[in-house]
Lab assay of single mutants.
Amino acid sequence: MQRVNMIMAESPGLITICLLGYLLSAECTVFLDHENANKILNRPKRYNSGKLEEFVQGNLERECMEEKCSFEEAREVFENTERTTEFWKQYVDGDQCESNPCLNGGSCKDDINSYECWCPFGFEGKNCELDVTCNIKNGRCEQFCKNSADNKVVCSCTEGYRLAENQKSCEPAVPFPCGRVSVSQTSKLTRAETVFPDVDYVNSTEAETILDNITQSTQSFNDFTRVVGGEDAKPGQFPWQVVLNGKVDAFCGGSIVNEKWIVTAAHCVETGVKITVVAGEHNIEETEHTEQKRNVIRIIPHHNYNAAINKYNHDIALLELDEPLVLNSYVTPICIADKEYTNIFLKFGSGYVSGWGRVFHKGRSALVLQYLRVPLVDRATCLRSTKFTIYNNMFCAGFHEGGRDSCQGDSGGPHVTEVEGTSFLTGIISWGEECAMKGKYGIYTKVSRYVNWIKEKTKLT
């Protein structure tokens, strides 16, 4: 034993070699072989497995989906700052455009905790909710729209109204504003409101030439003092309507412009014939205590009207009353817009006519005020429907199939267009061939041609 100890002390290297040989010859039971080890760690190889990531292109799944990435790591994937920024906006807080917040056709661009709407022409605001041009839906104005110097929408209202708090709607500024039905039992019968379409306001006024200088022999019209197929109006439903009495009662109609003036057809009036105007009328054979009678003290036909040349060209006249009318729910003026808007309103496509005229061709006159909704007829169809001249200051309205029309005794009465609950004068009943005849239409004086003249002559002093 002493000898062994001496050998170990003198030859430590020998001992180490012996131990190493023993270990190498022993069977290893701690580690699995290569094949079995792979069965336990069965993990798919990654895209760049075996390579240094710093030297390969980034992978979106590896960089940002398996674990949260930084902007720089995302930049490695896209290799483009702009594309990385677009991805980053949604990656950080989701897609803010998912709810489609942009209105009126706006395009949404996502941002971090926010979004941006790219608005089409005519709109602005956070969600493109603000109209900035009158060309689109009248700028959301209830009545009139004008573009300011910086191309912003400025709404306005006709006389007797003021802008509401929203700067879009119009509200009454006087007790009985024009064009409004205020009798409670008839307010439910107000005709369907007309909503502004998209309009090209630059070209809204037709490029028409008034044929002022045409000389033409007097034409022989049949029954051209021209509501057939209409309905009984309720008291106060058309408070701007008046009836004219002269040699015979209810020979023509008219509309209240203001307390002192009536507008009617020029062919209705004769110099030297006494005319009485009755406002607030409903049943011409009954006294309903809503009527107001006034005498006409002055007749002003349009300066281009000449019955000797043509009885229905420039067929418009103004009547001055001896005493002002007292405005109330049964006696209310009709609204008159400017030339541009009167023309736009007419193009809405349908209007209402009213009167006490004959209820059928050569038949009896109506006792109760009649009204009828009539569609506008395109000019080409209008011209083809008659052998008589249709001037540019006239328009056609009615039904091709016949059966409904204005008729004798309705002449001078109103053709009105309702705009968001307020009625505007767009025409004056003038003439036609018979009444409600198939293929024939009622012919009306186009008020847009005469609004400046009306307003100039009827100013209240």
Rank of each mutant, 00 (worst) to 15 (best):
W431Y: 13
S354K: 14
W453Q: 00
Y450P: 00
G254D: 00
D249L: 07
I262Q: 00
K109M: 08
G94A: 12
I390F: 06
R298L: 02
R384G: 10
V92A: 11
K455E: 07
S184M: 06
L327P: 03
T271H: 10
K293M: 06
E208R: 10
L32Y: 14
T287K: 03
N310A: 08
T215N: 09
L460H: 09
D198R: 09
L14C: 05
F144Q: 02
E340T: 15
S156H: 06
I275W: 09
G253S: 08
V242T: 03
E142G: 04
Q237I: 08
F424S: 00
S385F: 15
C119R: 03
C102R: 01
N343P: 02
S411F: 15
A192R: 04
T389D: 15
A380P: 13
P239M: 01
E193R: 05
L130W: 04
W431M: 13
I284Y: 09
E116I: 04
E340L: 08
A164I: 04
L367E: 14
S187P: 11
E288Y: 07
G409T: 07
K137L: 12
D150T: 09
E86P: 15
N38F: 05
G402L: 13
G125Q: 03
H415W: 03
R226K: 11
V153A: 06
T422D: 00
V153P: 12
C268A: 00
K51D: 09
Y391T: 06
K89M: 08
E456L: 06
E129R: 09
G229H: 04
A9L: 10
N166L: 02
K247C: 05
S70Q: 15
E340D: 13
G351M: 02
N313A: 09
K109Q: 09
K146A: 10
G357V: 15
D223T: 12
V269W: 04
T209F: 06
V447T: 09
S329P: 14
F424N: 01
N166F: 02
I262T: 01
K440N: 14
K247Y: 02
K260H: 05
D131W: 09
R140D: 09
V359D: 04
Y441G: 02
K293D: 02
E281S: 04
D33E: 03
W240M: 00
N245T: 05
C252I: 01
Y201C: 14
N5G: 13
Y115R: 15
K457H: 15
E171S: 06
N147Q: 10
K168V: 07
D111G: 08
W261D: 00
D232V: 06
D322N: 13
K347E: 13
C18S: 04
F31K: 07
C157S: 00
S11E: 03
R180L: 05
Q185R: 06
R75H: 15
I429F: 13
C335Q: 01
G122F: 05
L163D: 00
T190M: 04
F196Y: 10
C102K: 01
D212H: 09
G363C: 07
E270T: 08
G179Q: 01
H282G: 08
V4G: 11
G439E: 13
P44Q: 06
W261A: 01
I112K: 15
F224V: 07
R140G: 08
C97L: 02
V181G: 13
I297V: 12
T16Y: 07
L319Y: 01
K137S: 08
Y91M: 14
M6E: 04
C119G: 03
H303I: 06
H282E: 03
R294V: 02
C178R: 00
R298M: 03
G363L: 11
T422A: 05
K45D: 08
R404K: 00
E53G: 09
F424I: 00
E98T: 12
S187F: 09
K39I: 08
D198H: 11
G413R: 08
V353L: 08
G230T: 07
L163N: 02
K260S: 01
T209Y: 08
P301G: 04
L425F: 02
S220D: 11
N100G: 04
E340A: 13
K126T: 08
A192W: 10
P12V: 07
G409H: 14
C145E: 04
S204P: 06
E320L: 03
N138V: 06
A37E: 15
D150K: 08
A279D: 00
L383A: 15
D33H: 08
V181W: 06
N151T: 08
E76V: 15
S204E: 07
G355M: 04
I112Q: 11
G125P: 03
S406M: 13
S448V: 03
N295D: 11
G106R: 04
F55A: 13
G253D: 05
S107F: 05
E286N: 10
S99P: 12
S156D: 10
E456T: 09
N166P: 02
E434F: 13
R358K: 15
E53F: 04
V202T: 09
P197R: 03
E433V: 05
L321M: 06
S448F: 02
D322M: 02
C155A: 00
N203F: 06
S220K: 08
G50C: 13
L318Q: 01
V227N: 12
K234T: 06
T190K: 10
D232C: 08
I112H: 15
V326K: 13
A279T: 03
C69G: 09
Y371S: 13
H282L: 09
N310S: 08
D378E: 11
Q370V: 03
Y330A: 10
L52V: 06
G272R: 10
T287M: 07
G254I: 00
M8E: 08
F121T: 15
C69R: 06
N104F: 08
G125C: 02
L321K: 00
E73Q: 06
C145A: 03
H289V: 11
Q143P: 00
L383K: 05
N306R: 10
C119Y: 02
I256H: 00
N42Q: 09
I429S: 14
N245P: 02
G357K: 13
S114P: 10
F251R: 10
R404E: 04
P177F: 00
K455M: 10
H289C: 10
A192Y: 10
L346F: 09
T276L: 04
N135M: 14
R43D: 14
D93P: 15
N213Q: 10
A164E: 05
K339F: 09
C435M: 03
N151M: 11
H303V: 08
E418F: 08
F196K: 09
T209M: 10
C117E: 03
A397G: 13
L41Y: 13
L20W: 08
L24S: 03
Q167P: 03
A279I: 01
Y341Q: 13
T218F: 13
N313M: 06
A192C: 10
N59A: 07
K51H: 11
S148Q: 13
M437L: 14
E61Y: 07
C128N: 03
E27C: 04
E142W: 03
E433K: 06
K293R: 12
G439P: 07
T81I: 08
I299G: 04
S350Q: 14
F224A: 06
Q237H: 11
I336P: 00
S99A: 12
M437I: 05
P375K: 15
A397Q: 02
T225G: 07
A308P: 07
Y441H: 10
V202A: 12
K274Q: 07
V359K: 15
T271E: 12
Q370L: 02
C108S: 00
E79Y: 11
L60W: 11
N310Q: 11
R294K: 02
E340M: 06
K457A: 11
D232R: 10
L189M: 06
E418W: 09
N135G: 13
G21T: 12
Q219V: 04
I428M: 05
R449F: 15
I17K: 01
R358H: 13
I275P: 05
S329W: 06
A317W: 00
L19N: 01
L376H: 08
E82M: 15
E401S: 12
Y450Q: 00
G421T: 07
C117K: 03
H303C: 04
K234Y: 13
T133V: 05
K247L: 07
E54N: 04
E323T: 12
C335V: 00
P324T: 04
